[in-house]
Design a protein around this nucleic acid. Structure first.
Length: 309
DNA sequence: AAGACGAAAGTGGTTGA
DNA sequence: TCAACAACTTTCGTCTT
């Protein structure tokens, strides 16, 4: 559909891409190829296309975006160099667009400034890495350009963008955490998230339970061994097809719970449930499934015996 | 007394007609 | 657009440690 979100380096296939904010470039960390450039300058206003009608250059997903940027229709509409290239109808269109740009740009600019401030606030509250913040800013900017904010609160779109950025960078935060940090209702965050990812054609892999383990484990002060055991359990669970369709956090929590039992670092279901943001019941269900399919009872009994000694 | 367990009813979201 | 459905939650009573 759209090529605005390059996921892999076309040269070497690496997914290790780096987004340089100042230069507005996406660079492949592995081979150094500039994958995308002139994408977004965050200090620049962008025009809104809502006013355009008919044969307008509405952004409907075709990768025209940056081409239009190159036509000089960004902030500085009306550079002489651009005028030379245009004649007749194009010229009229050019002026029409410039008028719109002028009229709307201040509103967009103000919106973006506010939004990016909010984004920074939430992001730092959640201690998110810089790349995620930048990705979120990029997503948000795209959303604004497409007029996706209309009818939604700015904050919720910010939260949705952040959530999407987290997912894309495998640093998942739960919807609850986003909700808590942004003050937006959980379901609203989820809804906007789905909406903008669909509209922008961003593909997101279903999040991997293993990504949650490290964070949960450290909240629970569990040892590294317990952690890696939990990941082991997760892998086995995945092979037994216990993971598909279930909430990743619940599975991660259950794996941690079991693994803690095995290593004699028992935590209550309540404790684990709290840090994972699920209920005890969910942990119990997952836990039971894990025991059923993965014959882990023995290992747990072993630790129990060892305790007696 | 606290934690673990499980049943039952409710919620919000997805799917397929 | 609506109903069926799966996953998850809430609530509550019972069992175990």
């Amino acid at each position: 559909m759209t090529s605005e979100f390059v996921k892999k380096c076309p040269e070497c296939g690496s997914i290790n891409l780096f987004f340089n904010r100042e230069k507005g470039e996406v660079i492949c960390k592995d081979c150094g190829l500039v994958v995308e450039e002139k994408m977004i300058d965050f200090d620049q206003e962008w025009r809104d296309f809502n006013g355009d009608e008919g044969e307008s250059k509405r952004r409907t997903g075709a990768p025209m975006t940056y081409t239009q940027y190159d036509m000089g229709l960004g902030t500085e509409v009306g550079q002489k160099a651009d005028l030379y290239k245009l004649e007749g109808k194009d010229k009229n269109k050019f002026f029409r667009l410039r008028k719109w740009q002028y009229r709307i740009s201040t509103a967009i600019e103000r919106n973006l400034k506010l939004a990016l401030a909010e984004l920074k606030r939430v992001s730092s509250y959640l201690k998110l890495p810089k790349v995620v913040e930048e990705e979120a800013a990029r997503i948000y900017t795209l959303a604004v350009q497409r007029g996706l904010v209309r009818g939604r609160s700015m904050e919720s779109v910010v939260a949705g963008s952040l959530y999407a950025a987290c997912r894309r960078h495998d640093v998942p935060r739960t919807l609850d955490e986003l909700s808590d940090a942004s003050g937006i209702e959980k379901k609203e965050v989820g809804r906007t998230y789905r909406f903008i990812t669909r509209e922008l054609g961003i593909s997101i892999l279903p999040s991997n339970p293993a990504d949650y383990i490290a964070r949960f484990a450290s909240s629970l002060k569990l040892t590294a061994e317990t952690q890696s055991k939990a990941i082991e359990i997760l892998e086995m669970a995945q092979k037994s097809e216990l993971t598909s369709g279930r909430g990743p956090t619940g599975i991660a929590a259950a794996a941690l719970y079991v693994s803690a039992l095995i290593h004699g670092e028992k935590r209550t279901q309540r404790e684990v449930a709290d840090v994972a943001g699920v209920t005890e019941v969910t942990i119990r269900n997952r836990y039971k499934e894990l025991l059923d399919k993965l014959k882990l009872e023995k290992e747990i009994k072993k630790t129990k015996k060892r305790k007696k000694d």
